[in-house]
C-alpha cells in the first residue's frame, strides 16, 4: 500500500490555550514496497507522524492516504478496523503491552480481534515463532517469565500475526544489546523482502538507516527537513549538523580521510571490508604518483 501525506498539519489540543503544532505542512509519498527511515530528534514529530498511519489520529489540516483509505480532519474511513488490520505498528518498548497468560494467547489477541479463524491463527503462530527467533516451547509459558529480549519478540510476533501490509516500527531495538539489535533488524529486513511489506522505521540510528532503508525522511521541528535516498541525504554533513544530527560514522571517516589525504572515496554503502580495500588502493596510487 502506498502512503501519501498532503500538506498535513497536526495540532495537539487545538482551540485551547495549550494548542501545540506537532506537524506542519508535511507532504511526502512512500511507494508500496519501500523501506523508509524517518529520522529526527525528540519533538521533531516522528511519533505524531506514525500515529496517522493506522488512523490513531487524523490530520488537523491536509490529507493522509494509506492505500485506498483517506484520512482528513472531518472524514474518517468507515472501515477503520480494516485499515488497522493492514497496518501493523510496533510501538516503542512493545513488551510493555504484553498482558495475556501465555505467549500463544498474547500473539493470538490481535488476529482474534480482527476475526481471523482459530485454525488460521494457529497456523500463523507456527510460521511467526521461528521468524522472530523464538522456540515453540515458549508458547505455553507466561510472557512475563521471559527475558526482555524474548518479551520484545513476543510483542513483535503479536503485530506480525495480523499479517500487515505496512509495518511501522518505532525504535524497535531501543534497550537491546548489540546482538539483539542486529538480530531484530535483520529479521525485519528479511520479512520486508519476503512478504513484500512497506516498512516505516523510526530511528535515531543513522547506521540502521543507511544499512536498511531505500528512502530517508528527516524531520525537524514538525516539518520535513530533507528527503531522498540514504546515500544522497545522509552524506550531507553540514545540513545534518545544523539540526544536530550526525552522518553515519563511515561517512564521517571518509570526509576526514579526504581532508587529510586529499583523496576522495565516494560513499556507496560499501562494506567495511570494501572500504579498507579502497583506502589501500587510493593510498597506493597516490604513493606511486609522488
Amino acid at each position: 500500500m502506498d502512503i501519501t501525506f498532503k500538506n498535513v498539519d497536526y495540532i495537539y489540543q487545538e482551540n485551547s490555550p495549550f494548542a501545540h503544532k506537532a506537524i506542519e505542512n508535511l507532504s511526502f509519498h512512500i511507494p508500496s514496497g519501500s523501506f523508509v527511515a524517518v529520522i529526527g530528534h525528540t519533538g521533531s514529530g516522528k511519533s505524531t507522524l506514525i500515529q496517522h498511519l493506522n488512523g490513531l489520529i487524523r490530520p488537523s489540516n491536509g490529507e493522509v492516504h494509506i492505500g485506498d483509505f483517506r484520512l482528513t480532519n472531518d472524514d474518517k474511513p468507515k472501515n477503520m478496523k480494516e485499515l488497522r488490520s493492514r497496518v501493523g505498528v510496533v510501538f516503542q518498548y512493545p513488551e510493555h503491552q504484553l498482558f495475556e497468560e501465555t505467549v500463544a494467547k498474547d500473539i493470538a489477541f490481535g488476529p482474534e480481534n480482527f476475526g481471523v479463524y482459530k485454525r488460521d491463527i494457529e497456523k500463523r503462530i507456527k510460521e511467526i515463532i521461528p521468524a522472530v527467533g523464538l522456540s515453540e516451547e515458549l508458547l505455553e509459558r507466561s510472557p512475563f517469565e521471559l527475558s526482555g529480549g524474548q518479551m520484545r519478540r513476543v510483542a513483535i510476533a503479536g503485530v506480525l500475526a495480523i499479517k500487515p501490509e505496512i509495518l511501522v516500527l518505532d525504535e524497535p531495538t531501543a534497550g537491546l544489546d548489540p546482538r539483539g539489535q542486529k538480530e531484530i533488524m535483520e529479521m525485519f529486513y528479511d520479512l520486508h523482502q519476503k512478504e513484500n511489506l512497506t516498512t516505516v522505521l523510526v530511528t535515531h540510528s543513522m547506521e540502521d538507516a543507511v544499512k536498511y532503508a531505500d528512502h530517508v525522511i528527516i524531520l525537524n521541528k514538525g516539518t520535513k527537513y530533507m528527503e531522498g535516498k540514504p546515500e544522497e541525504v545522509l552524506t550531507q554533513q553540514e545540513a545534518l549538523n545544523k539540526v544536530q544530527l550526525d552522518v553515519p560514522e563511515m561517512i564521517e571517516f571518509l570526509y576526514a580521510f579526504e581532508k587529510r589525504f586529499g583523496l576522495p572515496i565516494p560513499f556507496k554503502r560499501q562494506s567495511v571490508k570494501q572500504l579498507a580495500d579502497e583506502i589501500q588502493h587510493a593510498m597506493k596510487e597516490a604513493g606511486s604518483h609522488e
Binding site: 539483539g180 560514522e249 571517516f253 580495500d277 589501500q280
Partner: peptide, 20 residues
C-alpha cells in the same frame, strides 16, 4: 559473546587484512 566493536577498530582490522 554478543558485543559490538567500534567502527574504527573494525576498519583498522580490515585495513590490516588488506595489507596496510
Amino acid at each position: 559473546i554478543g558485543l559490538d566493536v567500534p567502527f574504527i577498530a573494525t576498519l583498522a582490522d580490515e585495513l590490516n587484512k588488506s595489507g596496510l
